[in-house]
């Protein structure tokens, strides 16, 4: 894993998510797409590190939510996906889209549940926001895997067990 490239990519995507995409009400979650990408195409240890790091980045731009919920939920489901990928290879685009959708829904709900534990209110439109973001992410995500793989110098056909 090229960690410097990883850091630059995460930083750029985080700024993009908070800056350019922030004004659109319905948007894909680019950080979830990255989470699924690294869980699928990296070995398990790298997937664990990258999942928690992406979660930390999501927390940084997740204000006014407190820090921590996204780091935990991204880390947990990223790790689970990496282990799942050792059993079922997620190589085809429809499966990747499904993986993004499911991961996005699960992380979304766990994030708000954890935030609720710390005293944050749960918005009434939580289901719609999470589902719409998940659908957008799953549509856009598989198409972004190729440029991400190019930047990270990862062969997308590579599959480690």
């Amino acid at each position: 894993m090229r960690w410097l490239r990883f850091a630059v990519l995460i930083l750029a995507v985080t700024v993009l998510q908070k800056g350019l995409l922030a004004r659109w009400s319905s948007k894909p979650d680019l950080l979830i797409i990255l989470l699924v990408f690294f869980s699928i195409y990296c070995n398990t240890s790298e997937a664990i590190i990258s999942s928690f790091t992406i979660g930390f980045a999501a927390d940084l731009v997740g204000s006014p939510m407190p820090m921590g919920p996204q780091m935990i939920s991204f880390g947990l489901f990223g790790t689970l996906l990496a282990y799942l990928n050792r059993v079922i290879a997620i190589k085809r685009m429809p499966f990747q889209a499904l993986a993004i959708f499911v991961t996005s829904v699960l992380t979304g709900f766990l994030t708000h549940l954890l935030a609720y534990i710390t005293g944050e209110p749960i918005p009434s439109n939580i289901y719609i926001v999470v589902l719409v973001t998940s659908v957008y992410s799953s549509i856009v995500g598989p198409f972004l895997f190729l440029p991400i793989a190019w930047w990270m110098r990862i062969k997308v056909n590579r599959y480690r067990r």
Partner: peptide, 12 residues
């Protein structure tokens, strides 16, 4: 370790 870090952030 990472999970602990997340929990520390959560409850800070």
């Amino acid at each position: 370790w990472f999970m602990l870090t997340g929990l520390i952030f959560l409850f800070t």
